[in-house]
């Protein structure tokens, strides 16, 4: 469905994309990951034909360079933040539906499925609507004409948790044969949507695989926090460090944490039970996507350099 060969893009002296070769099959659910400035948005803009690039890029059999309009007919797009269009919601929906050649009724029904009734909200000016509502509108518009490809550029980045959950739920409506490419910083989004992950780094695709493979590549990236009675803490730490072979670190007095591989969490807890150390509580803390990527890419772990949450 998407076929890129030696895709490259240079801004001044900075080569943002440096030879991307890629095939996405119909129906694939792909997450596009990368540190800040890795070129995710640039790649999406190339896919939409909004900027010129080197190499060849075909979507649904059409050449993006020469046949941008037909490509965009087949591609739905949801940006990170919905612009505040002039006019009311109903006008905006009608205008973009007609522009995309979508059935206006179908879009309205889809909006209803997403929990947004045009009959109720249609007369409201777009600028009075919440970000969550707008993203749903854009999603409905993007899907309206049964597109072949859905491009999502960090669509939940500016949403509160509830709106984010609703948006991700809405993504389940996507037809099976539609190829979805989601650029995201959020592990939860990626896990909810994608079964294939692409990591952009240095202008190239540095990783192409499943989530598990990414975890494996990144190694111990999850933090397991364990709370034990204070008297047992030092014993517990020694015990755990012998299993995971990494130093534990202490936080807020009674709990301590260790970095563990995704599948080694059970081992840690088993060790403690064997030693009759009472585990009062435990929880895991997912790493930020940034630290996961840093791990996978072999970069020094530095959460501040990663694309963390922006909220």
């Amino acid at each position: 469905m998407i076929r890129a060969r030696d895709l490259a893009k240079q801004f001044g002296h900075h080569r943002v994309l440096d030879g991307i070769t890629l095939d996405l099959a119909p129906g694939e659910r792909v997450a596009l990951l990368g540190l800040n400035g890795a070129g995710k948005t640039t790649l999406i803009r190339c896919l939409l034909g909004l900027i010129p690039f080197e190499g060849t890029l075909q979507i649904a059999g059409c050449n993006v360079h020469t046949d941008g309009r037909r490509v965009r007919e087949r591609v739905g797009y949801v940006p990170q933040r919905a612009p505040h269009f002039d006019g009311t919601l109903a006008e905006t929906v009608e205008f973009f539906s007609r522009l995309r050649g979508s059935d206006h009724g179908a879009v309205a029904r889809r909006l209803l499925d997403l929990g947004l009734d045009l009959a109720v909200h249609g007369a409201k000016p777009v600028r009075t609507l919440s970000g969550g509502m707008l993203q749903k509108v854009l999603l409905a518009l993007a899907l309206g004409s049964d597109v072949s490809v859905l491009l999502l550029d960090e669509p939940t980045a500016n949403l509160d948790p509830r709106a984010r959950r609703e948006f991700l739920r809405g993504l389940r409506q996507v037809r099976e044969e539609t190829t979805v490419l989601l650029a995201s910083h959020r592990l939860a989004d990626v896990e909810a949507v994608a079964d294939r992950l692409l990591v952009l780094h240095g202008g190239r695709i540095a990783f192409d695989g499943t989530m598990d493979e990414l975890w494996a590549r990144a190694g111990a990236a999850e933090t397991l926090w364990v709370r034990v009675p204070p008297a047992m803490r030092d014993a517990a730490r020694a015990r755990v460090e012998s299993v995971v072979h990494t130093p534990a670190f202490v936080s807020n007095g009674t709990a301590f944490g260790v970095r563990v591989a995704h599948d080694a969490r059970a081992d840690v807890l088993a060790t403690l039970r064997e030693a009759d150390i009472r585990v009062e509580d435990f929880w895991t803390e997912s790493p930020s996507l940034g630290s996961l990527l840093s791990g996978a890419l072999g970069l020094p772990i530095d959460d501040s350099s990663a694309a963390g949450d922006r909220e």
């Binding site: 009311t88 109903a90 205008f95 007609r98 309205a108 045009l118 249609g122 007369a123």
Partner: peptide, 8 residues
């Protein structure tokens, strides 16, 4: 002024 949005 209002070419769109009459349907809804």
């Amino acid at each position: 002024r209002r070419p769109f949005g009459r349907a809804a």
